[in-house]
Structures are given as C-alpha cells and as structure tokens.
Design a protein around this nucleic acid. Structure first.
Lengths: 230, 230
DNA sequence: TCAAAAGTGTTCTCCCTACACCCATGG
DNA sequence: CCATGGGTGTAGGGAGAACACTTTTGA
C-alpha cells in the first residue's frame, strides 16, 4: 500500500478534531451525535469530527467538520482536552483534539442538514464509537467547571428567556436543585441580567418576567475577576 | 530529501509535547527553562519537550522528555491545552500538547543533570522560543484556575510547612495579598491541614506551627464537591 | 378541579472581613 | 534596640439558606 504521497523521516500520528455539541431545551441538556456510516464502528453514534488539514488550525477544523456533518455553525467553540491513547483508533495511531460547542438548540432543531444527526438527552446516551464515551465524560466535567466561571446561558439559551429556564439550565448541568427565590436573587444581584419590558408583563398574571443577558456588564465583571458560586 | 521511511496518503503534522514546570520557593513562583542548543531559536530559552513516539501517549512523552532534558521526575503532570497554529514552528507544521508540572523546588534544586536548565522567577522570564510565551500565559491561567479547586500546595510545598509558606504560595500564584489571620482561619476550617506536633512548638515562641496536608480529608471533600474561594 | 408555574419578603445564621497588640528572636 | 515574624480575638455587615401562600392557566 505505497500509494501515499507524503513521506516523513519519523512516523507521525493522524490528527483529528471531535466536537461535543451541547444544546439545552425544555427536556434538559442534550448532545448532538451522528451515526457512523462506515467502518470502524459503523452504525455507532459518534461526535462529529475529522482529520485536520495542513492549512487550518484545530479550531477551524472543528468548526468546519461540525458544519459539514451537521449543517450548523456554532457561535461558541472551546478546546477542552486532547486524547492520545495509543490504541484509541483501530485504524492506526490517531490523536484527537476535542472541543465542546454550545448552541441554542431552540434555534437549531429542524435545521439539521445531516439526516443522521440527532439530539440525545444527556441521561440517555447510546453506545458511542471509539473512546467517545470517555470524551463525553471529560466534556461534561469541563462544562460543569465552566459554568462556575461564566454564564453559559449566553450560548445555550434563547436571547430572551425566563428565570426558570435559566434555573433549569443550571440544575441540568450541575445536577442539583435550587430554591426558586434564592436562585433568582443571586442571579439578579450579579447584575448581568436585564429585564425585558415588552409591556406584556402584568404582576399576578401567569406570564413570567423575561430577561436577556447584558453582555457589557458581564464583560466588565469578568475583567475584574468574578466567580459564580452555586 | 526523500530519505524518509514513513509514507502516508495525506499529510500529517508533527506532534510534540511541551512541559511548563512550576516550582515554588522563598523567592516565589518559578518555571524551569532549558536553553536551546540548536536552531531554530538557538540560544533562546524554551520549555522542555519533544516529539511524541508512536508507542507512548502524550503524558508519557511529556514525562520522558522532562526527565531526559532536566533530569527530574515530576509527581504531578497535567495536560492543559494543545497549540495548533499553522505557522507556530518554522520547521514545518507542528502541534504541541502542553502540560504543566508541579514540583517541590526545595527537593529539586541542585539535582539538575542538564547544565542548561535553569529556574526563572515568574516575573522575570526571558525571551522564549516558538510560541512558548503564549503557552506560558495559558499555563499560568490554568494554574490560577486550578488553585481554586485543588490545593496545589500538595505538590509545590515540602511535606511539612508553615502557614506563611502556604499563604505566600497563594499570594504568588494569584498575585494578591491576604490578611494573615483570615487566611489561616479559612485554610484551617477546610479541614485538609493537620498540625504537626513534634513537640518543638511552644506558644509565645518564635517558631511557627507546622502543618501537613491531609490527603484523606482532601479526597473526601473533593468527592463531595468543594471549592476554595479566595 | 387539580396540577403546574410564578409572584412575593423575612428571618436567622454563618462566614467573611477588617483590625491591634504583644512576644520572641536575630542581627 | 529594632525589624521581622508569629501568636491571638472580636465586632459588624452581608450574603446565603430556609421557608408559605396566593394567583392564573391549561389539562
């Protein structure tokens, strides 16, 4: 099999990227998986990803593969770990640089060009290809740590949302429960939420108050160094 | 230049590891650098590191290169980021998987087999090779975040230490100042420190109380999920 | 009519913070 | 004798946690 055209003095591993896409909806936290159409692991579910080209860096590669395989462009993509086990890919030595993406699932559902892409609730993940189950565990841990430092709601919630959605997001990601009033007080005290006053709110009505994130205050607070407790 | 023996159908980048070694002493936080003896960047200082072999994973590679180039075995090594800029290495497309190591500098100084390895205070870093200045910045950020979740003193301080050493460590890493008594109170309340009672301590004497980390309580707390505030 | 979601305040406790004086040692 | 380092306690304020009832709507 000497059809290769690229020759090196020392052996080199293949380099791929994989992307764990988190979405959030009324049914909690989900990840987007694609069904593999070819061996190895044909028929298994896996994260979108693929081989890195020589003229692109890893993040560009992750975004490209994400769009090619699922049809969606993620606003937010972040590298969280690189997996290098010697035998993690039966085709030969391959390392993967793993990213997680946060997307507003509400704006994405139905926009899947790839017919074989599907959302799975985080508590209901099928058998995954390669070492992707391990990658998922590490991604979840990274997301849980991240949520302490940054309001991931920026990326996971619609632009306008109600407090219970935000609370559900935190409860889903961290797998805990909060008191409704205490959660709202704490969040509001941070000063990164702005109440949306579209005139539709009347106290004593069932409609909940709507909020948006105030990116300016968030950036300001972040530059001074802050941490969300929870 | 067709002397290479390894041929592939698609081009592949070189894969290296680099290791940012943090040490802590009475002069604050330091990193260990080696002076490059060959081009490119001959004469510049750089982190120890090198090419990954096909039968080792990246952490094994990082530890191996660390020992080969500085003569020291690090207890604690952790991957923190992978750098993939297309032109980060003038010799050709190369990605590096970066680790940081925490070592007890007190037990290391003088054990340098590599004559060209040298400690530099974090505030006094020379010009670095490749993109290593960026790698250092990212490593420092990772260390600062880590210190919030885990008592890095386990790895950076001698087994037995006094409270002011621990406080200096936190102040060096985070670049802040704490009140002596408040810092001690907070630390002791965590329950991960054990006072060493070697009989030499008498209150009202100049000698400070000595402590060790209690790894058992730490592991217990960590499994329940805790965070150091500061 | 019943369940689910949302509005609304107070109290108590604990933790964090700020702060001053004395003693012992070594130079 | 003075500079350094270390031991020791308290008071006040702020933030977190616990907690119940009413209203509306949709099933």
């Amino acid at each position: 099999m000497n059809k290769g055209k690229y020759t090196y003095e020392y052996p080199r591993p293949s380099v791929t990227t994989d992307c764990v896409i988190f979405g959030f909806g009324s049914d909690g936290l989900s990840v987007l998986l694609i069904e593999r159409g070819i061996e190895p692991f044909k028929g298994c579910w896996a994260f979108p990803g693929g081989f890195m080209k020589m003229d692109e860096d890893a993040e560009t590669c992750a975004r490209r593969e994400l769009e090619e395989e699922t049809g969606l462009k993620a606003d937010y993509v972040e590298q969280f770990a690189t997996f290098t086990d010697v035998d993690r890919d039966p085709r030969g030595r391959t390392i993967t640089i793993a990213y997680f993406a946060l997307v507003k699932k509400a704006e994405v559902t139905g926009a899947d060009d790839a017919a074989q892409a599907k959302w799975f609730r985080i508590s209901d993940i099928p058998q995954l290809a390669f070492d992707h189950d391990r990658i998922l565990r590490v991604a979840l841990k990274a997301l849980r740590e991240k949520i302490h430092f940054e309001p991931v709601g920026f990326e996971l919630l619609p632009d306008v949302f109600v407090m219970s959605q935000l609370q559900n997001l935190y409860e889903s990601v961290l797998d805990v429960k909060f008191d409704r009033r205490n959660f709202a007080n704490k969040m509001l005290k941070l000063g990164i939420l702005t109440e949306v006053n579209d005139g539709s709110f009347r106290p004593g009505t069932r409609d909940a108050k709507k909020y948006t994130f105030n990116k300016d205050s968030y950036m300001l607070m972040k530059s001074k160094g802050f941490r969300l407790e929870f």
